[in-house]
Design a protein around this nucleic acid. Structure first.
Length: 266
DNA sequence: ACGCTTCCCTGGAGGC
DNA sequence: TGCCTCCAGGGAAGCG
């Protein structure tokens, strides 16, 4: 379930571990997690190169190569990065592994293989092809810009928040969290929201994503009134009012919400 | 245009 | 114990 805060945490991890070192070897254990290239192409593309800096847009992570071009990593639902020394320390499901000149390794780990690694020759073209909207934490996304994104749009507010072509980075978990703090039911029609609702939604969107990043997405480190740590808990109660949390299908996903703090508009 | 389902993919949980 | 089905939810795709 890597969403913006998770991918931002991975980005910082990569910054702290796998940059500025020559990649000597690229090993692909399962080619299904390599997109837009064969494993051999990917190896040719990366061998002898260094990753120099990172860029994140929504849930997509990019790393710039010293020779030009980029590497894209998308984490699907179960992906993450692991940097380790001894080969024996490689986590299970390490489907792509880099070996650096210093002897360390960087692995793309993804149990369910819904994520991927891909070479990117032209970052701008790649971003255009992915049809990603503005990053949900882009400083240019102020309250007015946020309201503009909602203009003329129909459908349920949760679907809109999760639409990567509108706002990049929000998925099922954090859309629930944001809607909870804004006091809005996930199935509320977007057109039923007023300016004050949208401004509140915008404020909570920033606050929630930043708090999750500050907590390094560790459930135990999240603020006490967050729903995230309660997702897997049976019979969980609202951290605000104690009302039993409810689930509803929205946008093909299971949304968790508080029936009292987020009254249905229907 | 919207909302729903199906598919990809795997493992953990619960029922029988 | 073991088999079966469901569910998790990132995203693409297809249907009405």
């Amino acid at each position: 379930m890597p969403e913006l805060p998770d991918v931002e945490t991975f980005r910082r991890y990569l910054d702290a571990t796998g940059l500025h070192q020559t990649i000597e070897e690229v090993a692909v254990g399962d080619e299904r997690v390599v997109k837009r290239a064969t494993p051999a192409d990917l190896a040719d593309y990366l061998q002898g190169r260094r990753l120099e800096r990172t860029y994140r847009r929504g849930k997509h992570l990019f790393a710039a190569l010293d020779a030009g071009g980029w590497l894209e990593v998308h984490f699907g639902m179960t992906g993450y990065l692991a940097y380790y020394r001894a080969s024996g320390e490689a986590p299970e499901y390490s489907h792509v592994r880099f070996t650096y000149a210093n002897g360390y390794h960087l692995a793309f780990v993804d149990r369910r293989k819904l994520g991927y690694v891909a070479p990117v020759r032209d970052l701008a073209a790649c971003l255009a092809e992915l049809e990603l909207g503005i990053d949900a934490l882009d400083p240019e996304l102020d309250a007015a810009a946020f309201r503009e994104l909602a203009e003329g749009r129909r459908g349920q507010v949760k679907c809109w928040l999760m639409d990567q072509a509108t706002l990049a980075g929000i998925g099922n978990v954090y859309s629930d969290e944001i809607l909870f703090h804004a006091g809005i039911h996930p199935r509320t029609p977007l057109q039923g929201l007023g300016e004050a609702d949208l401004d509140r939604l915008h404020g909570q969107l920033r606050a929630v994503l930043k708090a999750a990043i500050d907590a390094q997405v560790q459930p135990g480190a999240m603020p006490a009134d967050f729903l995230v740590p309660l997702r897997e808990v049976a019979d969980a109660a609202c951290p605000r009012c104690g009302t039993p949390l409810a689930k509803v299908k929205a946008c093909g996903r299971t949304a968790q919400y508080c029936p009292r703090c987020q009254p249905s508009a229907e």
